[in-house]
Amino acid sequence: MRLTTPLGEALKTFRRAPLLSGLSVATIGFSLFTIGLFGLVALNFRQTLRTLAERVEVVAFVLRGTPTETITAASQDIQAFPEVLEVQYVSEEQALSRAREELVEFKEAYRDLETNPLPASLEIRLKEGFRDAGSAQGVAERIRGFAFIDDVRYGRDWVQRLDRLRTMAAVVGLVIGLAFAIVAMVIIGVTIRMTVLQRAHEIAIMRLVGATNRYIRGPFLLEGGIKGVLGGLLAVLMCWITFAVFRSTAGELGGSLVFFHAAHLGLIVLFGLGIGLLGSLLSVGRHLRHV
């Protein structure tokens, strides 16, 4: 005689109602896939913004004739600012040779110069998390305090635009992400409710013979959890296939695209598990209250 266990009962559901079980897993999978795709777009967008932000730089032009020792000492001071990642001194000669390399159209003009018109400068790169207009301006203000500094530039308009873009991306990402998550939860909840209703007869018999609510919930929770994990794995697989196909067809752009880290993938599966458990708990709980 085969006696039942909660896990055995949960697994039996897949055999007894393969279509409904498959549909549940597919629904959870596709819902999480939608969230995953959105996550991939958000991840790559954030990566692009981060690459752009790396170009945020404060350039301090040094007055002619400033002794090298003064500049070196000041560089060390600036390097100690909490926002500063790196300070690079660019001498007048280096500035000229760089201009010759980079500004090809003015190559002739730079070659015929008798005196070097370009000033020496300190190029200051900021640490991640400080690559915004406020931090750049703060650093610029402090550098202006050095007597040998002629002028400080940090592309204020550009950095401010980057800031706005970042804020907008975060807000839009949060709203759309939340909306996707809510829609997914509703769809998954309805699917799990269907499986509970399909087994209403069995639940009624369980109650009749004296099963406690906790006993009844056990197999449903396990079933919901298993479906959630399977749905999560399906979503991860679909995300990966979509990513691989997109990268191979996107040409040069494809190379710069990034995929989820293992932690992100784990999070998708964990989200599936959570949603499966919660959906089952709510559906069975609701059902038990009304029968």
Partner: peptide
């Protein structure tokens, strides 16, 4: 037999 056993299992 499983139907009958079920009533014992749940208790």
């Amino acid at each position: 037999e499983e139907n009958v056993a079920f009533a014992l299992e749940v208790t």
